[in-house]
């Protein structure tokens, strides 16, 4: 469904005001990115929870639409923050210890001069390989990368969602990219 010109915040307000179509339009704008973010952040070991967490996320959006303040953040930022909370809550409930490794320090030292990877994934096999590589990233890098590459959030917005500084966000993204470049086949072909 093609989103209309209405602003996200307007749609959320309209939903609060009883507009029965507004929420569906808002959902259609972000559901794909939201689900993929949840799914990738959960990783393969917790994939079965993705549907539930996705639904929980949107239920929370609907239930707390009145608390959204467009002056503080974009709707996407708010949505991803909710989704992230759901995922982390899930991990906490499952007593999954998420390693916050020292990758940030290492990331600052990663030279971002790797070969240009393939840009167009043509085969399902390659797509699966790349997705698996993303899911193998450390959690904080993975969520940062997915929010940036797929969710369309800016570094500032991701920093806000993940409650870290922009520099840390930047280093996480850089490290994630570097790791993916090493894994994705075909990257060498770009440089011969």
């Amino acid at each position: 469904m093609e989103p209309g010109p209405a602003d996200d915040a307007d749609l959320l307000r309209a939903h609060g005001g009883g507009d029965r179509h507004a929420f569906g339009r808002l959902y259609d704008r972000y559901d794909r990115q939201c689900f993929q973010f949840i799914r990738r952040t959960l990783g393969p070991a917790h994939a079965e929870a993705a549907e539930d967490l996705h639904q929980d996320t949107w239920m929370s959006v609907a239930a707390h639409a009145g608390s959204y303040d467009a002056r503080k953040s974009s709707f996407a930022t708010w949505l991803f923050a909710i989704a992230r909370n759901k995922v982390w809550d899930h991990f906490r409930k499952q007593k999954v210890a998420v390693l916050a490794t020292g990758e940030d320090d290492a990331a600052m030292r990663v030279a971002d001069t790797g070969p240009t990877p393939i840009e167009w994934v043509e085969t399902r096999e390659l797509a699966l390989t790349l997705i698996a590589a993303v899911e193998a990233l450390p959690l904080v890098q993975r969520e940062t990368f997915v929010m940036f590459a797929q969710g369309g959030l800016s570094l500032d917005e991701i920093a806000g969602v993940t409650n870290v500084g922009v520099e840390t966000t930047k280093s996480r993204l850089r490290y994630a990219r570097s790791a993916l470049r090493r894994i994705v086949p075909g990257q060498r072909s770009a440089n011969g």
């Binding site: 959902y27 390659l126 993916l180 994705v184």
Partner: peptide
């Protein structure tokens, strides 16, 4: 966006399941 970012987005698009998405939409909404 860098090439690896676009490659990832493209991979997600390639693996997208519209039927599942529609079912999910109906259930959530």
């Amino acid at each position: 966006l860098e090439p690896i970012d676009r490659a990832y987005a493209n991979a997600e698009a390639l693996l997208a399941d519209d039927a599942a998405r529609a079912q999910r939409r109906a259930r959530v909404l």
